[in-house]
Simulated assay, not measured.
Amino acid sequence: MSLAVSDLCVSLGGRSVVDGVSFGCEAGELVALVGPNGAGKTSLLRALASLVPSRGAIRLGDDDLRTLDPRARARAVAYLPQGHEAHWPLPARDIVALGRLPHGAGDPARLSAADAAAVEEAMGLADVGALADRPVTSLSGGERARVAMARVLAVGAPLILADEPTAALDPRHQLDVMGVLRGAARAGASVIAVTHDLGLAARFASRVLVMCEGRLAAAAAPETALAPQILARVFRIEAYRATLAGEAVLVPWT
Rank of each mutant, 00 (worst) to 15 (best):
L80K: 01
A117D: 10
H87D: 05
R110H: 08
L68R: 11
L60G: 04
L60E: 14
D127H: 09
D63R: 12
D69N: 08
P102M: 11
A105C: 02
P70V: 12
G129Y: 13
R71S: 14
T67C: 07
L131I: 02
A109I: 03
P81F: 10
Y79E: 01
A76D: 09
A76C: 15
D69H: 06
R93P: 13
L65Y: 11
A130P: 00
A117R: 14
T67M: 03
D115G: 07
P89Y: 00
L98I: 09
A92M: 04
S54R: 14
V96M: 05
R75P: 05
E120D: 15
L68Q: 07
P108W: 11
A117Y: 00
L111D: 00
A78R: 08
R66S: 09
G83F: 10
S54M: 05
A105V: 04
D64K: 03
I95G: 12
A78I: 03
A113M: 06
G106S: 09
R75S: 10
A126H: 08
D127C: 02
D94M: 04
S54I: 13
L131T: 00
R59N: 12
A72F: 05
R134K: 13
R71L: 12
S54Y: 12
H103G: 10
D127L: 01
P108F: 07
A97Y: 06
V96K: 12
S54A: 13
A114Q: 13
V96Y: 02
I58V: 15
H103V: 12
P91C: 05
A74F: 10
V128K: 00
P81R: 01
G106P: 07
M123H: 09
A97T: 11
W88T: 14
A117Q: 07
L90Q: 08
H84V: 13
G129T: 08
V77S: 01
H84L: 03
R110K: 14
G61S: 11
P81N: 03
V119P: 07
E121R: 03
P81K: 00
P70W: 03
R55D: 15
P53H: 11
G104R: 06
D115S: 13
E120C: 06
L125H: 04
L90D: 11
G83R: 07
V128Q: 00
L65S: 03
L90A: 06
L125K: 15
A74R: 02
L98Q: 11
A109N: 09
R134D: 04
I58P: 02
G129I: 01
A117I: 06
L65D: 04
H87C: 08
E85D: 09
G99H: 10
R100Q: 08
P53N: 09
A57I: 05
A109H: 10
P108I: 08
A86G: 07
L131C: 02
A114M: 01
R71V: 15
R93H: 09
G104I: 12
E120W: 04
G124F: 11
L60V: 15
P102V: 07
L131F: 03
H84N: 14
D107P: 08
D133W: 14
R75L: 11
R75I: 13
A97Q: 08
V52A: 11
P91N: 10
G129K: 04
H103F: 05
V77Y: 03
L125Y: 00
V77P: 00
L131P: 01
I58H: 13
A130R: 04
W88F: 10
D69K: 00
I95Q: 06
L65V: 15
I95D: 06
A72S: 15
V96F: 13
